[in-house]
Amino acid sequence: MTFFSEVLRGLWKENPTFRIVLGMCPTLAVTTSLQNGLGMGVATLFVLIGSNVLISLVRNVIPDKVRIPCYIVIAATLVTMVDLLMKAYTPALSKSLGIFIPLIVVNCIILGRAEAYASKNPPLMSLADGLGMGLGFTLSLSVISTVRELLGNGSITVWGSLAWNLKDYTSILLVTLPPGGFITLGCLLAAMNKYEIRLAERQGRSYSPARPANCRQCVIGCWNPDGPAKPGA
């Protein structure tokens, strides 16, 4: 378990969107354009690093029974401070990321990583986890939003400049509407699973989804065949 391997883990093996399937609400809501996807991803990346490090620092001080409210207070305080500082000193950045900042507090990736990782690991490793998960989230949102904007609009525009334009293309509006979010996400999830299964077959091992491995560490207990686990057990 090195710093680098922890960063890489969030990108593919435990990708928060496609593997752990966390934070679906912001994922489906903001991926209508690449600019929105990137904005939400980068804003979440910064908050995730900050909250992971902070929570890791206080992990031995906070009693178990009140840890979840404490994590939420820490994440919400951090988000509000970042929001105010950005408004005051980087108005241009705040204008493009501004609407995503308040949404981050309710993103369950923040609480999920605090609970599953930062509360059990030292600050440096938690930073690596936050960085990896944040990058993985940004990457996933970029992929989904590129597909949706391209099919739904026929072009891709990032911060005012046209990046890609499909000529003579009749856009499918459905893809940008909420149902299109579910359809795109479903297709991408299926494609990723298909690829994983093919890869496993080629290497001669049986394919096992990442989900149980992650939920087993979870003490909230939404999916756990052995009952709630003790933290750190």
């Binding site: 001080v61 906070i62 009140v66 404490c70 207070v73 820490i74 305080t77 509000t80 401070m81």
Partner: peptide, 14 residues
């Protein structure tokens, strides 16, 4: 006590 302290620190910082 812990909850109050955490909220207090957050409040002051904000």
């Amino acid at each position: 006590f812990v909850m109050t302290l955490v909220s207090l620190i957050s409040g002051v910082l904000l």
